[in-house]
Simulated assay, not measured.
Amino acid sequence: MRWVALTAVAPVAWGANYYVTHEFLPPDSPFYGAALRALPAGLVLLGLCRQRPRGAWWWRSAVLGLLNVSVFFVLVYAASQLLPTSIASTVMAVSPLAMMLIAWTLVAERPGIAHLAGAAIGLGGVCLTLLTGTAGVSMPGVLASVAAMLVSSFGHILTKRWNAGTDVLASTAWQLTAGGLFLLLVAAAVEGPPPSLSTSALLAFGYVTLVATALAFAAWFIGLRYLPAGTVGLVGLLNPVTGVLLGTAVAGEVLTVQQLCGLALVLAGVVLGQPTRAGRRGGSRTPLQPAPDKSAAREFSTRNPL
């Protein structure tokens, strides 16, 4: 359960990130916004681990950085600006089911019955929360959020497959740095000079960079190392719960009875998918930790930063 608690840091931080982005960051600079989120976080983690990629991890860092950072951050930034905090974060709750199906294909991790049931219950909660009949929901924003969910689900499972035998903090730093550098080049080409930032925007970027990116991604990828993808995906349902509650408490968004029922279902899905003492649920026989990749182990130090 300590790995579950550590993993939960990520979705809670991401749920709050929607509000911070929506309220304080410049709405017309998605590429610079994503670059200023990713690159400083990657450099901070790189300074902590002091390891550089070797061998296959040069191209792996580029691929994962593109999926988990470049494309994902731009889509999340756009969704955060186009949608209310509660709606933007709730769409991401479909990710547990996507992660389970992708993990079944890429890492042969068969989802257990409890995981599937938790995902179905959580998805029902998403539908109750989204289908409120509220006017003004931006379809481009919903599409951006759905695309972000699919891209990140694939990238996170690919990270789980490749991370065996590597330092989690180092691989996270490489992804964020590679993705941030790519975003910076695209931002300079597409958006021109960087936007001027107010004091509140600088403070917001401090939270987005250090908490919602550096800390959150390290916690998330450590969870993927030690827990089944189904469990990690269901813990991710705390993302919409945080977003909805924060949007209601701080941003003044109205929380209906239907949305409260949806949140209750989402929380029930999270609880249902947690690992038992034996580490197995629903008949899944997949071990919690993947077997180390011997070739990767020869290339990297296996020191655990925690």
Rank of each mutant, 00 (worst) to 15 (best):
residue 183 L to C: 03
residue 212 A to P: 03
residue 221 F to M: 14
residue 190 V to L: 12
residue 305 P to F: 15
residue 97 L to S: 11
residue 200 S to M: 12
residue 224 L to K: 07
residue 119 A to V: 07
residue 131 L to M: 10
residue 114 A to H: 14
residue 258 Q to K: 08
residue 57 W to I: 05
residue 219 A to E: 10
residue 212 A to H: 09
residue 102 I to C: 02
residue 38 A to T: 03
residue 108 A to W: 12
residue 95 S to R: 01
residue 280 R to S: 15
residue 222 I to M: 11
residue 1 M to R: 10
residue 229 A to R: 02
residue 190 V to D: 04
residue 28 D to K: 12
residue 274 Q to G: 11
residue 168 V to Y: 08
residue 277 R to E: 13
residue 234 L to A: 14
residue 11 P to C: 06
residue 184 L to H: 01
residue 149 M to A: 09
residue 303 R to A: 15
residue 204 A to L: 06
residue 218 A to H: 14
residue 125 G to F: 03
residue 64 L to I: 13
residue 48 L to H: 05
residue 76 V to N: 12
residue 31 F to Q: 00
residue 102 I to S: 03
residue 219 A to V: 11
residue 192 G to Q: 10
residue 181 L to H: 00
residue 250 V to E: 05
residue 142 V to E: 02
residue 217 F to S: 09
residue 3 W to K: 12
residue 241 V to W: 04
residue 257 V to I: 14
residue 181 L to W: 06
residue 184 L to N: 00
residue 295 S to A: 15
residue 55 G to M: 08
residue 223 G to A: 05
residue 273 G to S: 06
residue 143 L to K: 00
residue 115 H to F: 11
residue 100 M to E: 11
residue 166 T to C: 14
residue 198 S to W: 06
residue 15 G to F: 05
residue 256 T to Q: 02
residue 285 R to I: 14
residue 94 V to W: 04
residue 229 A to G: 09
residue 299 E to M: 13
residue 41 A to I: 01
residue 103 A to E: 09
residue 189 A to N: 05
residue 81 Q to W: 05
residue 126 V to Q: 01
residue 296 A to Q: 12
residue 27 P to S: 12
residue 226 Y to P: 02
residue 63 V to I: 15
residue 130 L to A: 01
residue 27 P to I: 00
residue 197 L to N: 03
residue 53 P to W: 13
residue 287 P to R: 07
residue 245 L to D: 08
residue 131 L to E: 10
residue 46 L to W: 14
residue 57 W to N: 15
residue 174 W to G: 01
residue 6 L to V: 15
residue 149 M to S: 04
residue 249 A to Y: 09
residue 167 D to P: 09
residue 175 Q to V: 03
residue 76 V to D: 05
residue 161 R to S: 12
residue 245 L to H: 07
residue 72 F to V: 04
residue 53 P to K: 08
residue 253 E to G: 02
residue 130 L to R: 00
residue 119 A to N: 03
residue 15 G to S: 06
residue 179 G to R: 01
residue 211 V to L: 11
residue 259 Q to F: 06
residue 277 R to Y: 08
residue 157 I to W: 06
residue 71 V to A: 14
residue 67 L to T: 11
residue 78 A to G: 02
residue 121 I to W: 04
residue 167 D to Y: 09
residue 97 L to F: 14
residue 85 T to K: 02
residue 263 L to G: 08
residue 297 A to V: 15
residue 287 P to I: 02
residue 209 T to V: 12
residue 16 A to K: 01
residue 87 I to W: 00
residue 108 A to F: 12
residue 206 G to W: 10
residue 89 S to K: 00
residue 28 D to R: 13
residue 130 L to G: 00
residue 146 V to W: 03
residue 164 A to P: 07
residue 206 G to F: 08
residue 129 T to Y: 00
residue 148 A to D: 00
residue 55 G to F: 06
residue 202 L to A: 15
residue 20 V to S: 06
residue 194 P to N: 10
residue 67 L to F: 03
residue 113 I to Q: 14
residue 269 G to Y: 03
residue 111 P to C: 07
residue 153 S to K: 04
residue 69 V to P: 01
residue 10 A to I: 06
residue 139 M to E: 09
residue 302 T to S: 11
residue 293 D to M: 11
residue 302 T to W: 09
residue 254 V to R: 15
